[in-house]
């Protein structure tokens, strides 16, 4: 049946864009669980509007436009107490973010290579902070190091990773 095909096609698109959607939304909100909520909301809207999407048209710009609406709505609802960006900043940052999101999968490949080159304890530090969202104070506590030392180490690590990724991506 034609509709079924259309739906499968749509689900495939939707599946493929999850990482990039998350990348975009997380960049705008900077907080994992709220970003996940907005990703879900965006999926919902995308699903509802699936009839408006024609198979010939590029999926990602359409999905990102809707994601931007959802981010704006979230920012508006949550207000300045919870969100770093206000609607003006979301607008100002959207274009840059959309461009970078476009390369997300390439960047992830680069990131994995760079991560695998890291010494174990550095990788562990990143994992605690980013995989487990552990606050700096707790990381410091658990490692018996002071907060500032952990912070400096993480800042350096992050910079190093970003540089490494740039190099890797230039290498292709």
């Amino acid at each position: 049946m034609k509709d079924t095909e259309q739906t499968e096609f749509f689900v495939q698109h939707l599946t493929e864009c999850q990482g990039r959607l998350f990348g975009y939304i997380y960049s705008m909100l900077g907080e994992h669980s709220r970003a996940m909520d907005v990703v879900q909301e965006t999926n919902l809207v995308l699903w509802r509007k699936k009839d408006e999407f024609r198979s010939g048209a590029p999926f990602m710009p359409w999905a990102l436009a809707i994601a931007r609406f959802q981010v704006l709505a979230h920012v508006r609802d949550q207000g300045r107490d919870k969100c770093l960006l206000d609607s003006e900043l979301v607008a100002a940052l959207s274009e840059e973010t959309e461009q970078q999101v476009d390369e997300l999968e390439t960047m992830r490949t680069a990131l994995r290579k760079c991560m695998s080159d890291l010494p174990r304890e550095k990788k562990g530090l990143l994992q605690l902070r980013y995989y487990h969202s552990m606050p700096i104070a707790e990381i410091a506590d658990s490692m018996g190091r002071n907060v500032n030392a952990v912070k400096v180490a993480l800042l350096r690590l992050r910079r190093g990773l970003a540089d490494c990724m740039h190099r890797r991506m230039l290498e292709g």
Partner: peptide
């Protein structure tokens, strides 16, 4: 974006 990718990983 880096944060997002680390989260995804």
């Amino acid at each position: 974006m880096l944060g997002a990718m680390l989260k995804l990983e």
